[in-house]
């Protein structure tokens, strides 16, 4: 089923360059946005206006909320920076040798984890504002996510590393990606049974942590974000994934400009939204799942020929209906 734009708000003062990441605060009222224009912005998601912004030295590749008053960000400046939103103070916590590509907060450990193109992940302690430990990944880190004590790291050359945050001395599992092409994004199921990953070539794979044969048999991959154009299938990268905390369903966004919602357990597509102006570069559900933030911005993923118009980056907040995100089995 296709859904229009009747339930969404476009935020004003959107970033001037590609949107890297989006995250709601715990109340779902504020939206944190990191962008390639080197600015970290905080929006009032209800009113759709910009509340404040912080200027960084270089483009930001990821950002997250530590709590409602503190945000962390990293990017091409190679610095992990902590922002005190109320006091408008920024604090450099540490550095990586290369750009920081992704960041995530572990609820279990209460730490912030950063992944970098220097082939390392680093755990940071927000209380002492210092490095806890770094671990080599043998390849450039492209995406990370955590649930419970599991940390999933997706690297270049299609490697997936699964770490147990309680014991970082050894890597728990090393896998080759189930997908044929580069891993672009990884997100864990909120219930902690597995993770989904999107590839550069229009596919999403569902994987499980449990190595038991029965469980592993359930893993699968499916095609998405592809368009038929006169018998030619146009294949777009999957740039963003976001999980609904309550229903364990997820949304995917691709360079085709579409957002779809999926029921991973029942192998069904729940909804597909209207086509956004350009690539979907970031997605985020609010904690209670009633809102979905959608960042639409060109990622320079394809050569633009001639004077083709590139739409400006735009931010939308969509009020979610149950029909769009609730699994059909629960609905009935």
């Amino acid at each position: 089923m296709s859904y229009g734009q009747d339930t969404e708000t476009r935020l004003s003062d959107a970033p001037t360059d590609s949107i890297s990441s989006l995250q709601f605060d715990s109340s779902g009222r504020k939206l944190l946005c990191a962008a390639w224009d080197s600015k970290l912005r905080i929006y009032d998601a209800q009113a759709g206006i910009l509340e404040c912004d912080f200027k960084s030295q270089a483009p930001l590749l990821d950002a997250l909320y530590e709590d409602d008053n503190h945000a962390w960000a990293g990017g091409l400046a190679r610095k992990v920076t902590r922002y005190n939103i109320e006091r408008n103070i920024e604090d450099n916590i540490g550095t990586h040798e290369e750009a920081i590509s992704c960041m995530v907060r572990s609820q279990e450990k209460g730490c912030v984890i950063s992944g970098s193109w220097d082939q390392e992940i680093t755990l940071w302690d927000p209380r002492t504002r210092s490095r806890i430990v770094s671990r080599p990944q043998n390849e450039r880190v492209y995406s990370i996510d955590t649930v419970g004590n599991q940390l999933v790291v997706g690297t270049a050359q299609r490697r997936i590393l699964i770490w147990d945050l309680r014991n970082l001395d050894i890597c728990e599992q090393k896998r080759d990606s189930n997908l044929k092409y580069q891993t672009r994004v990884i997100k864990c199921f909120p219930n902690g049974i597995g993770f989904v990953m999107g590839s550069i070539e229009g596919r999403v794979a569902v994987e499980y942590f449990d190595v038991d044969a029965e469980v592993q048999r359930k893993r699968y991959a499916f095609k998405c974000h592809r368009q038929k154009n006169e018998d030619i299938e146009e294949i777009y990268p999957v740039n963003a994934l976001a999980f609904h905390q309550k229903y364990q369903t997820f949304a995917s966004g691709g360079s085709d400009g579409f957002v779809s919602t999926w029921d991973g357990f029942n192998k069904k597509r729940l909804a597909i939204y209207r086509r956004y102006p350009t690539s979907i570069s970031a997605l985020a559900f609010s904690p209670n799942g009633d809102q979905l933030a959608i960042g639409s911005s060109f990622l320079d993923e394809i050569d633009v020929q001639g004077d083709r118009y590139i739409p400006e980056p735009q931010l939308f907040v969509r009020q979610m209906l149950d029909a769009e995100i609730k699994p059909k089995s629960l609905s009935t």
Partner: peptide
């Protein structure tokens, strides 16, 4: 090939074991 099943868009396919 775990993804050898070239299913249609949105149709989910099963991986090998």
């Amino acid at each position: 090939d775990d993804e050898s099943d070239d299913s249609d868009d949105g149709k989910i396919t099963k991986g090998s074991s």
